[in-house]
């Protein structure tokens, strides 16, 4: 296969807090090929969003600190880019959809104002950035996310739209000018289930139609199974398992993945799902060795002392666990 569109190598992200550095990301590796749909799965607070926000360099300034790692976009390190190159990536390369559509839209500007600016500053030629052309692009994008009456929507303020419509508008803004990679940060989580499903289908359709790559952040294995080709399972700032989607469900290996799978309630009944005991560790004092060991049913002495690295078990199925 050709070179990946995006490759994250050994990414560490720390947050400054009053208690010292909160070491959230602990060496994340991830890559996406052109046209590939990748899932990033893990429970809340495991660093999924942090990973993706560092890709666009929109982590809170002054708090986030990246001690090591690389984020390569077509081989160029985004973390070392000058403002101009970074702008290029943001306007032409990668766009992101946020978890909370209500928070991701500015409440005091109309949808139109916000969309027009996204188009206007996306590095169009002079001819293309004429007002009527910008409006045409915006209307086209709104049509593409299946919202009727785009002209009216452009004059609406975000609070006049429903949650599902807001998220569609966010998607429209992310695809309104051509981009190679779309990062969707739990786009359905704040919506109710039927709308959630519509939004996911819409995303998949658009990504396939425009031949974009997709990174889908989700805490739901079901969503990942439906939408992605390959899944990264993340726990406490580490990727613990990578596999093709079908492989992961057929043959899950990491104890955490097994735990996640057993947390899904089954339609066949059989009582409450088992789940995983305990919770995400304190990032100020993360456990040594494997960060999952305090919650792991199969932890041995070695897990407490040494950090397991991803091992390839063939066919791209990688696991970071000594016990597999």
């Amino acid at each position: 296969m050709s070179n990946p569109v995006l490759e994250i190598k050994n990414l560490h992200v720390w947050y400054r807090t009053y208690g010292g550095y909160s070491r959230v990301l602990d060496g994340v590796n991830l890559h996406v090929y052109k046209g590939e749909k990748v899932g990033l799965v893990g429970e809340a607070g495991c660093g999924k969003t942090t990973t993706m926000r560092s890709v666009l360099r929109i982590l809170p300034e002054g708090q986030a600190h990246i001690p090591e790692g690389q984020i390569l976009y077509h081989g160029n390190d985004i973390l070392k880019m000058k403002p101009r190159e970074l702008q290029q990536v943001r306007t032409r390369g990668i766009s992101m959809i946020f978890q909370e559509p209500a928070a991701a839209l500015n409440p005091v500007f109309t949808v139109g104002t916000q969309m027009f600016d996204v188009i206007k500053y996306s590095g169009l030629s002079k001819e293309e950035s004429r007002k009527d052309n910008i409006k045409r692009l915006a209307i086209q994008a709104i049509k593409e996310v299946y919202i009727p009456d785009p002209e009216r929507i452009l004059n609406c303020y975000p609070n006049q739209l429903s949650g599902g419509m807001k998220q569609r508008i966010c998607i429209a803004m992310a695809i309104v000018t051509a981009r190679e990679l779309l990062i969707a940060d739990e786009p359905g989580t704040s919506l109710d289930v039927t709308i959630q499903d519509q939004v996911h289908r819409l995303l998949r359709g658009l990504v396939e139609k425009k031949e974009m790559s997709l990174i889908m952040i989700t805490h739901s294995l079901g969503v990942a199974r439906e939408l992605t080709d390959r899944i990264y399972v993340m726990y406490a700032g580490n990727i613990v398992e990578v596999a093709r989607t079908s492989d992961l469900f057929a043959n899950p290996l990491h104890p955490y993945t097994l735990g996640l799978l057993s947390s899904v309630p089954k339609l066949t009944g059989g009582g409450v799902a088992e789940g995983i005991y305990g919770r995400i560790p304190d990032y100020l004092r993360p456990p040594g060795g494997c960060r999952f060991h305090p919650r792991c049913p199969r932890a041995v002495q070695r897990c407490r002392e040494e950090k397991p690295l991803l091992r390839d078990l063939g066919d791209g199925h990688q696991v970071a666990c000594f016990q597999v």
């Binding site: 943001r90 946020f98 928070a103 500015n106 500007f109």
Partner: peptide
């Protein structure tokens, strides 16, 4: 710290537009 500012930065909207428009107006209220 709001998402809409992060989103605007992520869309590649220039800093002066974000500060003078998208951040200023809600902050004046």
């Amino acid at each position: 710290g709001k998402d809409y500012v992060a989103a605007a930065v992520g869309y590649g909207i220039p800093n002066h537009i974000i500060m003078g428009k998208y951040l200023l107006k809600p902050s004046l209220i």
